[in-house]
């Protein structure tokens, strides 16, 4: 049984080196629908996209392109799973919405989230090596949130930049192997996103979703999404943490024995390797 895993937002735009009809088609679609020039890795002429929104679009289109390539060689998924931003490409691949609609939706949500950056400076923090208790304590003590529970030792924090730096310093003092932070426009996967939830719900309400043609496991509560559940999920998931380890275990439990990471990089594959190696050690 084959599972396709759709990763979250990449840290950087990886240049496409292929030259083929699918990439050209996605490039055109991207430009028309989102204003993002896929091949140049920047906004098209009007330049209205923020860097973060551009990165989100790039992540989704990377997954869509990889999906097309896999289908071309006859690879067919029996099950899909998503991590954060990966939901948009996963919905398109599951047949819940078109590629065009998925790209448009991610751009509109990205633009909406980017307006949060005007009021405060947000960041993501990445402590590696600590167990969950000290990470949650550092988050609590500094007014930030655990946004991703990726494995037993890999987490992502989200919140205001100065608080993230303080939380990471606490993680470092508690013995984290490494800490790093990244600027972001919105405190993704935290309750702070409630500030724009009505706006996001109004955007999502403009789209129609059909039933997934392939089961799609979401990364918040590890349910299999139905068409009716998708609109609320897309708004709610931005206020809830991602639970990747639980999601990967749900994928395994569903019977998946062969997995392909469908997108930019190998982050999920590496998380899965960590989770599996812990299971092996037990």
């Amino acid at each position: 049984m084959t599972g396709w895993l759709f990763p979250g937002q990449p840290l950087r735009c990886e240049q496409f080196t292929d030259h083929n009809h699918d990439l050209e088609q996605l490039h055109q679609l991207c430009c028309e629908v989102t204003g993002y020039d896929l091949l140049k890795g920047q906004s098209c002429s009007d330049g209205t996209l923020s860097n973060h929104t551009a990165l989100q679009i790039h992540g989704v289109v990377s997954s869509l392109y990889r999906s097309r390539c896999l289908k071309k060689v006859g690879d067919v998924p029996d099950l899909l799973a998503e991590h954060s931003l990966g939901i948009y490409a996963a919905l398109a691949v599951a047949g819940c919405m078109s590629e065009q609609a998925a790209l448009e939706l991610v751009a509109r949500i990205g633009n909406s989230m980017s307006r949060l950056a005007g009021s405060r400076e947000y960041a993501l923090g990445c402590p590696i090596g600590l167990l969950v208790d000290p990470v949650e304590a550092a988050a609590r003590n500094n007014g930030v949130y655990v946004a991703n529970y990726n494995t037993s030792r890999h987490f992502l924090l989200a919140g205001e930049k100065q608080n993230i730096e303080a939380a990471l310093a606490e993680c470092q003092a508690a013995g984290a192997f490494s800490v790093s932070s990244f600027a972001c426009e919105a405190p993704l996967h935290t309750p702070l996103m409630a500030e724009i939830s009505s706006e996001l719900a109004a955007i999502v309400a403009e789209y129609r979703f059909t039933e997934p043609q392939v089961p799609l496991i979401e990364s918040v509560a590890q349910t299999t999404l139905s068409a009716a559940a998708i609109p609320a999920f897309l708004v709610d998931e931005l206020q809830q943490p991602v639970w990747w380890e639980r999601t990967w275990k749900a994928v395994r439990t569903a019977g998946v024995t062969r997995c392909i990471e469908v997108g930019s990089g190998q982050t999920l594959t590496k998380f899965n390797r960590w989770i599996d190696s812990e299971a092996d050690r037990v």
């Binding site: 590696i128 890999h154 192997f177 490494s178 590496k270 390797r273």
Partner: peptide, 23 residues
């Protein structure tokens, strides 16, 4: 990357009994 680094830290401790304490 940093995910691989932690995996190597664990492997070094398991296979060679050597600790890499921090990044």
């Amino acid at each position: 990357d940093s995910i691989d680094a932690l995996q190597l830290v664990v492997a070094m401790e398991k296979d060679f009994g050597v600790v890499v304490p921090d990044a």
